[in-house]
């Protein structure tokens, strides 16, 4: 892996992002902490190391990598990462889910929040948008990558597989998609609610290059993205099957679907914050 990566700096950022997540969700007693905490290393890796992007936001994103979130309910981790990357003032995190905010419950373009290029929340739609944007990059001769994250439960939506089929058929090979493979969804474990295995075999059968990664391990993730970039643009899209723990970083939330969409109370917030170092200053 690249020698320039400062893993400690990424971990510090992740700790602050996790504090932001639990504080944002606690403040309005709504939102989705579980998936957000589980994907923190992923978001921090992309925005602070992997992607070529510009925080002076250009909706069309010519000449830079694009990023889409399909499972829009993990908006807290995205908003925090965007703010900590300089897309908008960190203080604005305080408006999350409140009337008049640009930080809608699920990501939206209508209020003009920098960093968001399409609305998401109704599941299964993000891969199509990502592949469409990647198709446009190819038409425009733009050499950048297009990234997207999807939930694993979300793969129960049929549209995901329509998009997967299309990307392979049309050789949209500038796509690096990731699945947040935490094995949880609202009603319980994915394997109990509606089994989706074998994911690796399914994506390979759909014509994708599949990489497996540890989504809560910076070094492993960054290595995986380096590999993904080296394998992309050779005729096939790339999927990163990324094992994560829902609720990672907060001991009483980790590994359970129960914190998918539940906010911590005052005592739980205090407990959570005691486990997460304030590294960059709270908003």
């Amino acid at each position: 892996m690249s020698n320039q990566v400062n893993i400690q700096a990424l971990q510090n950022t992740a700790s602050q992002v996790r504090r932001d997540i639990v504080r944002m969700v606690h403040a309005v007693q709504s939102g989705h902490p579980g998936g957000s905490l589980g994907c923190t290393e992923y978001f921090v890796s992309l925005y602070f190391h992997v992607m070529n992007h510009n925080n002076k936001f250009n909706p069309n994103g010519e000449g830079e990598d694009l990023f889409f979130v399909s499972n829009g309910h993990i908006s807290p981790v995205w908003y925090s990462t965007l703010a900590r990357s300089g897309y908008f003032p960190v203080k604005e995190l305080d408006t999350f889910r409140k009337m008049g905010t640009r930080l809608q419950g699920h990501p939206a373009t209508e209020e003009g929040l920098p960093g968001i290029r399409i609305a998401s929340g109704s599941l299964g739609q993000g891969l199509s948008a990502c592949v469409g944007a990647a198709q446009t990059k190819k038409l425009n001769g733009d050499d950048s990558f297009v990234y997207v994250i999807m939930g694993d439960g979300e793969l129960q939506e049929g549209q995901v597989w329509e998009a997967a089929m299309y990307a392979a058929h049309h050789k949209v090979d500038n796509v690096i998609a990731s699945v947040d493979y935490n094995g949880r969804q609202i009603d319980g474990d994915v394997q109990d609610v509606m089994g989706i295995e074998s994911l690796k075999a399914k994506w390979e059968a759909f014509g994708w290059i599949v990489l497996e990664s540890e989504g809560n391990d910076f070094e492993n993730l960054i290595n995986t993205f380096e590999k993904a970039k080296s394998l992309a643009k050779q005729g096939r899209p790339v999927l990163n099957l990324m094992k994560t723990e829902m609720g990672q970083g907060v001991d009483f939330m980790v590994g359970s679907h129960k914190w998918h969409g539940v906010a911590p109370n005052d005592a739980q917030l205090e407990d959570a914050l005691s486990q997460l170092e304030e590294t960059l200053g709270d908003y």
Binding site: P59, N60, G61, E62, L66, F68, R117, I118, G124, Q125, G126, L127, S128, A129, C130, V131, G132, A133, A134, Q135, T136, K137, L139, N140, D142, G158, Q159, E162, A163, M165, Y166, H169, H170
Partner: peptide, 24 residues
Amino acid sequence: RFFQVGIAEANMMGLAAGMTIGGK
């Protein structure tokens, strides 16, 4: 500039939305 998407209308709408990003 023509894209056959097969019998997959949901994906077609999503692709079209994505393709606008970058000016198509």
